[in-house]
Simulated scan of single mutants.
Amino acid sequence: MANHIHPATSVSSPSMANPDTSAARSGFRERFFNPAARQKLLAFASLLLLMIFFSVASPNFMEVDNLVSILQSTAVNGVLAIACTYVIITSGIDLSVGTMMTFCAVMTGVVLTNWGMPLPLGIAAALFFGALSGWVSGMVIAKLKVPPFIATLGMMMLLKGLSLVISGTRPIYFNDTEGFSAIAQDSLIGDLIPSLPIPNAVLILFLVAIGSSIILNKTVFGRYTFALGSNEEALRLSGVKVDFWKVAVYTFSGAICGIAGLIIASRLNSAQPALGQGYELDAIAAVVIGGTSLSGGTGTILGTIIGAFIMSVLVNGLRIMSVAQEWQTVVTGVIIILAVYLDILRRRRRT
């Protein structure tokens, strides 16, 4: 009698033959072709296209001095954007990051120049007053239930006024503070590799980015940051102290603004009390361009850094092409509107 073999048992599908391969492919698609990854790739492609365009439009764009200038300007905006990333992931907003940066720079000037304290205390002062300012904003939002937009708008004006009052409306110079300018202007990388004179400010940016990314993705603090933006009420019902973590996010964001204050004060070798307002717009634009949703719940530090470089390259390229300052502002405004509109489109597609 002939042997009959059932077709279902004689031929196996590829996925059944090698389930590990199928799972690996699925994991690869999920990792590299999800909406967040596509947004980062799109932002990076936009950055490359901008650099190619400005390189063709002006031969001065790719000069070493100009590239270093782009890196230096990105250092300040990038650190502020990292601070904004945490807040925006919680579905909040912080309009005070620019003036908070200035306030921290002024307080560093008071500690180092007016009081004659050593450099480490000046650095600690920047971090402390940044964290304190963020804590106040967080308490107003979490405990008094003031909307983040209004609370941080008020904090922006408050810190701007305090900076002017404390400094007497005059810049505070660090000429007598040994080693302060080295924080941002010297180059540890250049000492090791003379052909790469990358300022310390850029090194600080990437160290802050790496540390912030680890905290955001590998810690309980990071998980609660995402959860606050995804579904705050569900987090509250699960027994988590929502107000505590919300205040913690704004405090942490404020401390990062303190680092930005150190960078800009060291770069200018002075604390300029009238500086700061307007930086928050570039920072928020960098965050949104990098793929962080204004509705909260999603975002990456890598995307934010790419967004910060896009903003810096755009402004620098327009300046190299001798575009008038007022038109540079117009272009920046258009970019912000487009970035927010693209975020709205992304949210519609998900729903």
Rank of each mutant, 00 (worst) to 15 (best):
P7W: 10
P7C: 08
T9Q: 12
V11Q: 11
M16K: 15
N18Q: 11
S26Q: 13
F28W: 14
R29I: 12
E30M: 13
F33L: 15
R38M: 15
R38W: 12
K40I: 14
A45F: 08
A45M: 08
A45I: 13
S46M: 13
L47Y: 03
L47C: 03
L48F: 08
L49M: 12
L50T: 10
M51L: 10
F53T: 08
S55Q: 05
V56A: 12
A57H: 11
S58T: 08
N60D: 15
M62V: 13
D65I: 11
N66Y: 09
I70G: 03
I70M: 05
L71C: 09
A75Y: 04
N77T: 15
V79W: 05
C84L: 14
V87E: 00
V87D: 00
I88G: 00
I89W: 00
G92S: 11
G98I: 02
T102A: 15
A105Q: 06
V106F: 07
M107H: 03
M107R: 04
L112C: 09
L127A: 06
G130H: 00
A131T: 05
M139N: 01
M139Q: 06
M139V: 11
K143D: 11
K145F: 06
K145H: 09
V146P: 01
P148V: 00
A151W: 01
A151R: 01
T152Q: 01
L153R: 06
L153K: 01
K160Q: 15
K160R: 15
V165Y: 12
G168C: 12
T169H: 06
R170I: 10
Y173V: 14
F174C: 08
E178L: 13
I183A: 02
A184Q: 01
D186M: 11
D186W: 09
L188G: 11
I189V: 15
L192S: 12
P197G: 11
N200H: 09
I210Y: 02
S213F: 01
I214W: 07
L216A: 02
N217V: 05
V220A: 08
R223H: 07
Y224L: 01
T225C: 03
T225F: 01
F226Y: 15
G229T: 02
E232Y: 04
E233M: 12
L235K: 09
L235H: 10
A248V: 05
A248N: 09
V249F: 00
T251I: 04
S253I: 01
S253K: 02
G254P: 00
G254S: 05
A255V: 00
G258S: 03
G258P: 00
G258M: 00
G258D: 01
A260E: 05
G261T: 07
G261E: 06
L262W: 03
N269I: 13
P273N: 08
E280A: 05
I284L: 13
I289C: 05
G291C: 04
T292R: 02
S293M: 07
S295P: 00
G296L: 05
T298H: 09
T300C: 04
I306E: 00
G307A: 07
A308R: 02
M311N: 03
L314M: 14
V315L: 13
G317C: 06
G317R: 02
L318S: 01
I320H: 09
S322D: 15
Q325P: 07
W327M: 14
T332I: 14
I336S: 12
I337M: 13
L338W: 09
A339K: 05
A339W: 09
L342W: 07
L342E: 06
D343E: 11
D343T: 10
I344F: 14
L345Y: 13
R347L: 09
R347N: 11
R348C: 07
T351L: 15
